[in-house]
Design a protein around this nucleic acid. Structure first.
Length: 268
DNA sequence: CGGCATGTTGCGCA
DNA sequence: TTGCGCAACATGCC
């Protein structure tokens, strides 16, 4: 599920579901999600704690506990959180289950993750990867001069790979990069160093556009039946802007949809 | 059955 | 030292 908009949506949910609640019981038998900690140690460490606040940076979430510890969480490719009642049947692919109590009201929040690429790390210190993240487009905004600097230092990388580098901007993933570059009319293969100031402005606007749009879709909460994106996953379909056939290639090991007719290929 | 998947990390090599 | 390409992780779904 998760790129920046989905994780932000998750943060809002967790804030409503968990903030101010006490963790009265935790269950996990999965030794991958909480690695390198043992499941039993994780359970012991969080049981009885009150969740004071939920933060997000890029695709990472952080639950701050009342004893100064934090649970850093990453959803990997297929993780999500779901709320239910303490009496519900366990969910398929449940990995970590929190039984909560707040003002005498009990509830359950379950971390679900079929592929188990997600993480849940209980620690007092900031996770190094959390500290190394670049600015968050939603929380910090996108500073075009700072972005230009970062792109200049990765001048030979494709612009798409550079945007997905979490040290450049935190939270931009495959879909958001594809959609933003389409909006900016820039070919994803263009070297990062070839973008002019106005190209960088166009990319910045493209990112804001796709992030806001995806967030709005999530807020509507309409089951997510079909692909809500303009070009992601639409190889072979007509470009919604110029009508030419959308193409696909691989960049940095990731599938990339684009329109060679209306996305300009920049050269350095 | 084959192919593909919204992410991150670590390794080997130039 | 730095950067790049790629496999690995584990499993579902079309």
């Amino acid at each position: 599920m998760p790129e920046l908009p989905e994780v932000e949506h998750t943060r809002k949910n967790l804030d409503r579901w968990m903030r101010g609640a006490r963790i009265v019981e935790v269950r996990t038998r999965d030794d991958r999600i909480v690695r390198p900690m043992k499941p039993a140690s994780f359970v012991k460490g969080v049981t009885g704690r009150v969740i004071e606040r939920i933060e997000r940076r890029g695709k990472w979430l952080r639950l701050l506990l009342d004893d100064g510890m934090s649970v850093f969480t990453h959803l990997g490719m297929t993780g999500w959180f779901e709320r239910g009642a303490s009496t519900d049947h366990p969910l398929r692919f449940d990995r970590v289950t929190f039984e909560l109590s707040r003002k005498g009201v009990t509830s359950r929040v379950t971390y679900v993750d079929p592929r188990r690429w997600g993480r849940m790390v209980l620690t007092k210190e900031d996770l190094p990867v959390w500290s190394s993240l670049g600015p968050d487009p939603l929380d910090d905004g996108i500073d075009e001069a700072a972005l230009a600097d970062k792109l200049a230092r990765r001048k030979k990388r494709s612009i798409k790979e550079a945007l997905m580098d979490q040290k450049v901007l935190a939270g931009v993933g495959n879909i958001q990069a594809i959609e933003a570059l389409w909006k900016a009319k820039i070919d994803p293969r263009s070297p990062a160093g070839a973008l002019t100031t106005s190209d960088i402005r166009a990319v910045t606007r493209g990112l804001r556009w796709t992030i806001d749009r995806t967030l709005a879709d999530l807020a509507k909460g309409d089951g997510g039946a079909k692909n809500p994106f303009k070009i992601y996953g639409r190889k072979g379909e007509a470009c919604p802007r110029c009508g030419e056939k959308l193409e696909r290639l691989t960049l940095g090991g990731r599938t990339t949809t684009f329109c060679s007719a209306c996305q300009r290929r920049l050269r350095s």
